[in-house]
Simulated assay, not measured.
Amino acid sequence: MDSVHSGDARYLRDSVQRAVKVVVAGPFGVGKTTLVGTLSEIRPLRTEETMTQAGATVDDLDGIKDKTTTTVAMDFGRLTLNDDLVLFLFGAPGQARFQQLWRDLTYGALGALVLADTRRLDQSFDVIDRLEEAGLPYAVAVNDFPDAPVYDDERLRKALDLLPETPLVVCDARNPASATDALITLVEHLLTLS
């Protein structure tokens, strides 16, 4: 790395020796782009496009009628954890039509943070199934939307069919402290598995 760039936040510090990949997954419209943007120390890469009438026939807008854009490839953000370790956040598109890209994004990841929405919990099943099939450890963060019903942990675990050891938290993807807590939950879970 050119020393001219060493003070520029767009570039990695010279001291960084290790990078860790984490996927932010979840169904369409659950807040993955928001969470990556909230956590990223750099301006996140976003591949959002305006939704078209053609997509309306494919994408289920039930419960998210005001959504006007969608991720068509991925979101990318970076978070430096300490002088030698950086975390790369990859937000995966939620629609089934992007499944091949989704598999590519999970390749080499240490784990995934699954975002869920209590207004549409059933839409999380496909994402959780894909992670389990891939053998990728995950934690679940229920994104706290203002108009969403609130359930206790036991009811959420049962509704999502989560194993007792699968971490479950509630977060607000727009709030840096809350999003960080959700990410810490995933990291702590990954540490228990190593």
Rank of each mutant, 00 (worst) to 15 (best):
N143A: 06
P176H: 11
E48P: 04
K158I: 11
T68N: 08
T180F: 00
D117P: 01
G111D: 11
S40I: 01
A19V: 15
R120G: 04
L131S: 07
A109V: 00
Q123S: 15
E154D: 13
P27G: 10
V142D: 05
T50N: 12
L193A: 13
E49F: 11
L190T: 00
L61A: 11
D75S: 04
A73Q: 14
L39D: 05
P164C: 05
M74Y: 12
I64D: 03
R43C: 10
T118D: 07
P44F: 06
D181L: 01
D152L: 01
R120F: 05
T71K: 09
T52Q: 11
M51Q: 13
P44H: 08
H189G: 02
D147H: 02
R13N: 13
A92R: 00
V24L: 08
L191N: 14
Q17Y: 01
A92F: 03
S124H: 10
D172R: 02
G26S: 11
A141H: 03
Y151E: 06
I128K: 04
Y151A: 07
L163V: 04
G55F: 12
L115D: 05
T34L: 09
P93I: 04
A19I: 15
D104L: 12
D147K: 08
R174W: 06
D153G: 00
K67H: 10
L12Y: 14
L162E: 06
Q99L: 11
S40L: 08
A109Y: 02
D153Y: 01
P137Y: 02
G37L: 11
F88G: 03
R120A: 00
E132M: 08
A116P: 03
L193N: 13
A177D: 07
T69S: 14
V36S: 05
Q53I: 09
T192Q: 14
V170E: 04
E154G: 12
T106I: 09
K21D: 03
E132I: 05
T70Y: 11
G63I: 05
D144S: 02
T180D: 04
L89P: 04
A179C: 07
R157E: 11
M74N: 06
K32A: 02
T69D: 14
Q99W: 05
E165Q: 02
F90M: 12
R119W: 06
V22E: 01
A9W: 11
T180N: 02
L136D: 02
G31C: 01
D181T: 03
P176Y: 11
F28A: 06
K65V: 15
P167K: 00
T80E: 15
V140A: 05
L81I: 14
R120S: 04
T47K: 09
I184P: 00
V30A: 06
N143C: 07
F76G: 08
E41D: 13
K67R: 15
Y11I: 01
L160G: 02
R130K: 10
T180Y: 01
F28M: 13
L121V: 07
R97N: 10
G108K: 09
L136F: 01
G94C: 11
A73F: 13
T118P: 05
A177H: 08
R103F: 12
P167V: 03
E165T: 00
R43T: 15
L162N: 03
T34E: 13
V169R: 05
E132A: 12
P149W: 13
V187T: 06
A179G: 07
L79Y: 05
F125L: 12
